[in-house]
């Protein structure tokens, strides 16, 4: 037996990995809470939620099927995100850790901090995942990309266990060679070019690496979050010039579509726009980007083994 296998925390790490993979995740990484604290804005590190937190476990679940990527943006607004599987894997993991190791653990709510309105998250799950080595920041508004899986959805669990940490990725799959080529020819990468609200800009350096990423997040929020919509509808309804205008604003298709999302819950109210990701060669071309590719890889591996 190796020294590593003797280490109970290494064994726990392996068990954690096995657990989340069995619950639908494809990537898992760990970072110590202190490192996250060093980078997160004051008051938004792991210890703000779990004061004795020692480790942050980041997990990634896969994005969409290939059919979903090929579908309309309307369809993607409903099923493009993978919030459900994240709950299943990460929430379950917090129970697994407490039950198996007797250590306080917390599923990080992937939600806003209610003290500050609707634009400030409780934690940056992106920061956790990046430091834990399961994603790297892209030019598409810092959405994390994974070289094998493309676009993943991330969730985090905080724990008082002192788990052996991982490291951030050695390299960044963004920009892909095809993106560098397009940037050199047109001055824009695919994600920048096809964003419907033109909120992405930035530059590549001589070596074809990210020089600067700029994201007008407030514009992306008009597509992905739309949390101001409710107040806006009510306000416009109040100041509507005529009764018919008021009816259209408060009860028209836009209002009904929005309220349907709000009341139908999971999977429909955030992360509704995928146009930058649809155009991204890493997202659609990564070796295990979708279930078709995953299935092919699995069958190939099984054949090789046989």
């Amino acid at each position: 037996m190796t020294a590593q296998a003797d280490n109970p925390m290494e064994q726990a790490k392996a068990a954690i990995k096995a657990y989340v993979l069995s619950r639908g995740a494809v990537a898992v990484g760990i970072i110590d809470a202190d490192t996250v604290e060093r980078i997160a804005p004051p008051g938004f590190g792991p210890k703000a939620l779990l004061p004795q937190a020692r480790s942050v476990i980041a997990i990634g679940v896969p994005g969409c099927t290939r059919g979903t990527w090929r579908s309309t943006a309307k369809v993607m607004t409903f099923i493009g995100n993978s919030v459900g599987p994240i709950y299943r894997a990460a929430f379950g993991l917090s129970f697994f850790l407490e039950q198996t190791y007797g250590q306080p653990s917390l599923f990080v709510p992937p939600h806003i901090d209610p003290e500050y309105g609707n634009r400030i998250p409780l934690q940056s799950l992106k920061l956790h995942a990046e430091l834990a080595g399961i994603g790297a920041r892209s030019l598409a508004g810092d959405i994390l990309l994974h070289p094998e899986f493309g676009l993943l959805y991330y969730g985090s669990v905080l724990t008082e266990m002192d788990l052996p940490p991982d490291r951030p990725m050695d390299s960044n799959p963004c920009p892909s060679p095809a993106c560098v080529k397009l940037y050199r020819a047109e001055g824009q990468t695919p994600c920048q070019k096809f964003c419907p609200v033109e909120c992405l800009s930035g530059s590549l350096d001589e070596a074809g690496q990210i020089d600067e990423m700029v994201c007008d997040m407030y514009r992306c929020a008009e597509m992905c979050q739309r949390y101001e919509t409710m107040g806006d509808l009510i306000h416009d309804g109040i100041v509507a010039p005529t009764e018919l205008d008021r009816e259209e604003i408060l009860y028209g298709a836009e209002a009904q579509g929005f309220l349907y999302r709000v009341t139908s819950g999971i999977g429909a109210t955030h992360a509704q726009c995928f146009e930058c990701m649809r155009a991204c060669p890493v997202v659609t071309g990564a070796p295990l980007a979708d279930p078709i590719r995953m299935g092919e890889a699995k069958r190939k591996a099984a054949k090789a083994k046989a």
Partner: peptide
Amino acid sequence: VVAERRVFRRDQYRKLFGLGAGKRY
């Protein structure tokens, strides 16, 4: 929060209705 609401454009979302399935912005 007030400033964010004031620049928020509700109509942008309609753009998504015409995109995807081969059509890009």
